[in-house]
Nucleic acid binder design. Structure first.
Lengths: 160, 160
DNA sequence: GGGACTCATGTAATGTTATAACAGCCGCGG
DNA sequence: CCGCGGCTGTTATAACATTACATGAGTCCC
């Protein structure tokens, strides 16, 4: 059940900081952080793990905020589009962004044991990708970089 | 409709070479390249694009080789597991491996216009990822690296 | 040959993830 | 007041994937 950075932290801050950052950016860009969107972001921050759209929908349903898939997907699309959350393709799941302070190029480290997801700095990786792509004349818009393996905590358990 | 390398080539060779490589590796490793598996690989090589499992299943059905989803998924699992094909997570689709000569770390370049997929050499990218991961003590097993953008051919069309 | 085993296949049913399409609401500018 | 854009509510369905169980073909060992 360990969180995004593979390290302990004050989790209340994650939530309030994350929402505050989104709030600020939405105000700055004229976007609407509506109750459903805000709540979905809070849920993602709270749970601090990759969640399926239907997991999130369950929460929303319990809270009377919507019960049909499009409700969840629309909120998630919004959050992903504006960088407040990310989709983990490998898991068909979503996580709150761990670095909401503007543009970034995340690399996700997914633990195959505890399913935690860490978002780490992908700048060197993106650089390498840009080099690779330019050799074939390909122009990258966006990219998906996800590693599967063992997080530090689970590695200990597997020590042989 | 352009293919894996964004460049023209003799496509008959792709198919025969791909199947021959798989054949050889299966023999070497004691794996069974059964008719369904072989046919799925041929279909992927033939079409030379990312195909959904159900697209492949349609082909199989037309040929009397199986009609239920597990038939396609089992063959695809086999091919992916042994490196004869890859899954493109972003597209929920599969492509034949373009470099069946043993271990490799592919990076996929996915054109958002024509949907072609190129498999390029990911060694420098993997190196960068390993560096990034090791900083947080994460041990990578496998990874998914997919870039979305415009291939050289579609770039021309978009020149403004 | 017969029994036990493994691996591959056939098939029904179901589960999970995601989208299309349309109707209604609400705030805002004209 | 009206039209318009953006968000939400809801029904229905599409697209992707797996579980579970039955059958068959080959191999090994006795």
């Amino acid at each position: 059940m360990d969180p995004l950075g593979f390290s302990p932290h004050n989790h209340d801050h994650c939530i309030s900081d994350g929402v505050a950052a989104a709030d600020a950016q939405c105000r700055a860009k004229g976007l609407q952080l509506t109750p459903v969107r805000r709540r979905v972001l809070e849920i993602l921050l709270q749970e601090h793990r990759a969640m399926g759209a239907y997991d999130i929908l369950d929460h929303l349903r319990n809270e009377g905020l919507g019960s049909q898939p499009p409700v969840a997907y629309r909120a998630l699309d919004f959050l992903v589009k504006h960088g407040f959350a990310h989709k983990i393709e490998r898991l068909n799941a979503f996580v709150a962004c761990a670095h909401p302070e503007g543009d970034h190029a995340p690399v996700f480290l997914i633990c195959r044991d505890c399913n935690s997801v860490a978002e780490s700095d992908g700048r060197t990786v993106r650089k390498a990708m840009a080099d690779t792509a330019s050799q074939s004349g390909f122009a990258i818009d966006r990219s998906v970089v996800e590693a599967l393996g063992l997080c530090p905590n689970c590695r200990e358990g597997h020590a042989e």
